[in-house]
């Protein structure tokens, strides 16, 4: 390991940036409709062999920092699933415009 290299943006274990941020266990809104639908779509695509966890992670961890920390959790999933479907030619840009 080269200690001089900064960790990737998703590698948050021990990251001092969040050292003084409380975890806020009380902020726990119910899962919204959007998130449930994205999650269900993920499972369907996984079962059809069109999406793996690693493909999904790759496109989340590769998001620009602004989006990685700015988008909601399931927005990041959607962006990732969309990227995988585009890369595999299952959908086209024109259909998503």
């Amino acid at each position: 390991m080269d200690d001089a290299l900064p960790p990737a943006q998703h590698d948050l274990g021990g990251n001092p940036r969040f050292r003084c941020v409380p975890v806020e266990p009380d902020v726990d809104p119910p899962m919204d409709d959007f998130g449930k639908r994205v999650d269900a779509l993920r499972v369907v695509l996984r079962e059809k062999g069109l999406l793996t966890t690693d493909e999904q992670r790759l496109h989340i961890e590769g998001l620009p920092e602004r989006d990685y920390f700015g988008l909601t959790y399931y927005e990041k999933w959607l962006r990732s699933i969309t990227a995988v479907m585009l890369a595999k030619g299952q959908v086209t840009w024109d259909e998503l415009k």
Partner: peptide
Amino acid sequence: YKAPSAENIALLEKLVAAL
């Protein structure tokens, strides 16, 4: 917690429709 943007809600429906 934040709500998803209108843009991403629309993207989800376009993606599902295309699939």
